[in-house]
Computed example of a mutant assay.
Amino acid sequence: MASSDRPGGAVPGGEAMPPGKRTTLEQKVLDKGAQMLQSLKPVKQFHQHVCTFALHAHDLTRQIETHHYVTRSNQDFLQCAVYDSDNSHAHLIGVEYIVTDRIFETLPAEEQKLWHSHAYEV
């Protein structure tokens, strides 16, 4: 998951509106029509919600709450949509793939550098 350390924009908790014009009445009507006609099958595959805390990569003193909505592709592969809160105004802040060590070890060394561990000490 990548995140921006730049100030401004969306704040943790989904309280701020992103930059841009207000949604028009025409667009709201189109959105309602789409909601009635479309199944959103991929989105409905998310069956787990995991709340975690993450540190900013470039400032380890900054911690944010993250909400992972998880779908399991198989025993070794999870896909997560990551949001800054669990409320109805949450902002999508990342997409994360979680793989087992078995899969991780099959990745080229250059790609392994792009991943981070979810292992922990007991």
Rank of each mutant, 00 (worst) to 15 (best):
H58I: 13
D101Y: 00
K32V: 01
V29C: 00
Q38S: 09
G9E: 02
Q27C: 02
Q35S: 11
A34F: 11
E15D: 03
Q75C: 04
Q75R: 07
A54T: 11
A2K: 12
S73Y: 14
G94N: 04
L107S: 05
S4A: 13
H49C: 08
H67N: 12
C80P: 00
Y69A: 06
Y83K: 01
H118I: 02
A109S: 13
L107F: 15
F46K: 06
F104R: 13
E110H: 14
L114P: 00
N74W: 06
V95Y: 14
A34L: 14
H91Q: 07
K113Y: 09
H68F: 13
S117L: 01
Q79M: 12
T52V: 06
H47V: 15
L60Y: 08
V82C: 02
D31I: 01
S88A: 05
T106I: 06
V29Q: 01
K32N: 03
L37G: 10
D76R: 05
A81W: 05
E65F: 06
T106D: 10
Q48L: 13
P7D: 07
Q48D: 15
K41Q: 10
G8H: 14
M17P: 00
K44G: 10
V50Y: 01
E96H: 02
G13C: 08
P12M: 05
E65I: 08
P42F: 04
Y83E: 01
A2V: 09
L25I: 00
M17R: 14
C51V: 12
A109K: 10
G33D: 15
Q38P: 01
G13H: 08
E96M: 12
M17W: 09
V82Q: 05
H118C: 06
V99A: 03
E110P: 01
Q38G: 03
T106Q: 15
G8K: 08
P19E: 15
L92N: 04
P12D: 07
R102Q: 10
H67R: 08
P42I: 07
F77T: 08
W115V: 01
M36K: 11
T71K: 15
I98F: 04
Y83H: 06
H118A: 03
H56T: 11
V43N: 00
S3D: 07
E105S: 14
P42L: 04
Y83A: 04
Q27F: 05
G9C: 04
L37N: 13
D59K: 14
K44W: 07
A16I: 00
Y120P: 00
S88H: 07
Q27L: 05
Q112F: 03
H118G: 01
I103F: 09
L114H: 12
I64S: 10
T100Q: 04
M1C: 04
E15T: 09
S73R: 11
M36Q: 10
V11M: 03
I64T: 12
L55D: 15
Q63P: 05
K44Y: 11
A57C: 13
V11C: 04
F104K: 12
C80W: 00
T61Q: 14
K113F: 09
G8Y: 13
P19W: 07
F77Y: 15
D84M: 06
V122E: 09
D5K: 07
W115I: 02
P7R: 13
H56F: 15
I64G: 04
F104E: 09
H67D: 05
Q38C: 06
G14E: 07
A81C: 05
G94C: 04
E26Y: 03
K44F: 10
V11A: 11
V70Y: 06
E26I: 01
R62Y: 14
V11D: 06
L60W: 06
Q38N: 07
